[in-house]
Design a protein around this nucleic acid. Structure first.
Lengths: 356, 356
DNA sequence: CTGAAAGCGCTTACAG
DNA sequence: CTGAAAGCGCTTACAG
């Protein structure tokens, strides 16, 4: 007795294959393969016929068959620190996702917890088990030279979203952190501030140094001396900002404005100031970095620096994909521009006493 | 002339295949296949031998080959609204990722922007192009009955992270929103508050109604009347919270405590109160929901409700995976517990005037 | 409980 | 510039 085909199987139309396209275009499947993989040695008229057939059948190559027969996985790994405050990573994710979709790649997420004594081992295990073609490393992982060394050894192409460390043709993207820091510091100086505190970020982040340098340059440009007690270490966390602000506000002559190297630390600064009953910006102006959601949701909302993170992540991911596809790509040489977003946490300071 | 094998190919050891395992275990590849797919009809001793061979060779099945020959994709889609405030989604992501890793599935992210007039079309395109086996729907998409209808039509199993709508054996997970809302309202009442404002969430979220019911129940339990002017609509956004708080604080007899249906609206409430020079919790107590990062980073930090979102997402995703693998799974019947996190945004109110 | 054969839909390596 | 053949590593459908 023959079983009849179950109704479900009947209703599902089989997706068109490369054979269907080849037949419709009157060519071999190898030629179709050439066209869909953008190989160059196909006559223009042939290419056109194949493209029409692809269009007509709404053909999309079967990813599994491609992977099984070929040497690529069509997978990009995004290895990142799983942070408390996800807004930076959300933007990176959105940008990377967009680039992957456009390039026909899948994005595989590999969250890590830091600090992690077995970091390199974990990354190695991840990478070797995950069958991926390339890796995107946002900050701060992109700043870890051991990870870069490992990926180089494993021969896995990668792209970093983090300042360049040394000259090299490796793929990285960055924004003009130093210039932005210069701009926002100068903005405070123009408001009349002369005693300017600075809270540094986590030293493991490449941006930390750049932001600090921008602050120094702005002071120099205005002829204001750099006073070491006005510079405090932070770790980019809310708590570390609070602690640093406490030290700054405990000074006999505290700063009238504080540049925090990110919004969380700026929020910590405001928190600390409010606990002391200080008014902002009356008694203290505060600026942050990154324009995360908290910047506009605390009171007063933060003057901060906005970076085009989605665009940066998208640009570098798509560059990586093009390289994986065999294109000869130039590294990005220009940093992306940032800009200052002015809100209520900063205000004019009548010039009174210079430190000079 | 024969080309010699390129050095790279030589150094790369080929990964073991199902044939290697079969040979080592002295069985056919079909039997190996049975073992690695946990099929039941294999003699225990045979199974053991195969498992040893798998172990010895560190064999892992080639995903592409599996997909190409089989009927599964080993892919779960996570379709979500791409929000401004990502902390809820970050937790969902973490939980879903964990379950997928444990189950050998890949998680495919499908962010959507709301409101979206073409929502159903977009979801349909996503789902039919992405070759996935099942879908996870966090709030609020899990509350959209059109999406559920669509997935039912397409015959794609799904799991929702959102309150159950009707009885059914579909997969969903929820926490005890109503109870948590009851608890936090009762907490305020115990602090002496009698004039309690409530800011509702986006009506599209199933949780909105549950949280509102908890508030009502707590008032009833304390014998406090429900006054409609104390209940305001919100949309879960910071701005909507600010607007609702403005209306509440403009009342001739404003509430002394406000229950906001999430942290962002609570932050908006605090923002509005501070703009009026009100002290918190001296003049006004405020509570939120969700314990997002902002809850502990604004001043004063928020009393709020914490839900075990990571655990909920992990539980429901792994249930979905088990169902996809053919297991007979029971839907989760018990909601997860939430608990109140007490911080500085709430304080004791000396009882003065009852509204009654 | 176990196995031999066919086939999934592509790319590779080679030939012309 | 184009194509015929082999094969990637599994699962399916069938047989016993």
């Amino acid at each position: 007795m023959k079983n009849s085909v179950p109704p479900k199987a009947q209703s599902k139309l089989k997706a068109p294959t490369i054979f269907d396209v080849a037949k419709l275009a009157g060519v071999s499947i190898k030629t179709v393969s050439r066209v869909i993989n953008l190989e160059s040695n196909v006559r223009a008229s042939t290419r056109e016929r194949v493209e029409e057939a692809v269009e007509a059948l709404d053909y999309r190559p079967n990813a599994a068959a491609r992977v099984l027969s070929g040497k690529r996985f069509y997978v990009i790994g995004l290895i990142y620190e799983n942070p408390n405050e996800f807004s930076y990573m959300q933007k990176v994710l959105n940008g990377a996702l967009k680039a992957c979709e456009a390039g026909g790649y899948t994005l595989l997420l590999l969250p890590l917890t830091l600090p992690n004594p077995d970091l390199i081992d974990d990354v190695q295990r991840f990478v070797s088990q995950s069958r991926l073609d390339g890796v995107v490393l946002p900050a701060p992982l992109g700043d870890f030279s051991e990870i870069q060394r490992l990926l180089n050894e494993l021969n896995i192409p990668y792209a970093r979203i983090t300042p360049k460390t040394e000259a090299g043709d490796d793929l990285s993207v960055q924004c003009h952190d130093e210039q932005a820091s210069f701009d926002v510091t100068q903005f405070l100086i123009e408001q009349g501030h002369r005693r300017l505190g600075f809270i540094k970020g986590d030293p493991i982040h490449g941006a930390t140094e750049h932001r600090y340098r921008g602050y120094i340059r702005a002071l120099q440009a205005a002829g204001i001396g750099l006073h070491s007690e006005f510079v405090r270490d932070g770790m980019f966390s809310f708590e570390s900002g609070k602690t640093a602000a406490r030290a700054l506000l405990d000074l006999r002559e505290p700063p009238t404005a504080i540049v925090a190297s990110n919004d969380d630390m700026a929020a910590g600064t405001i928190f600390e100031a409010r606990e002391r009953g200080l008014s902002i910006p009356g008694d203290l102006s505060v600026v942050g970095f990154d324009d995360t959601p908290i910047a506009s949701h605390i009171w007063p909302p933060l003057t901060t620096v906005r970076q085009p993170i989605v665009e940066m992540a998208e640009a570098i991911t798509s560059l990586l994909i093009r390289r994986l596809k065999g294109e000869q790509v130039e590294p990005l040489d220009q940093p992306f521009a940032c800009h200052v977003v002015t809100r209520a946490s900063t205000g004019i300071r009548a010039a009174e006493d210079d430190l000079a």
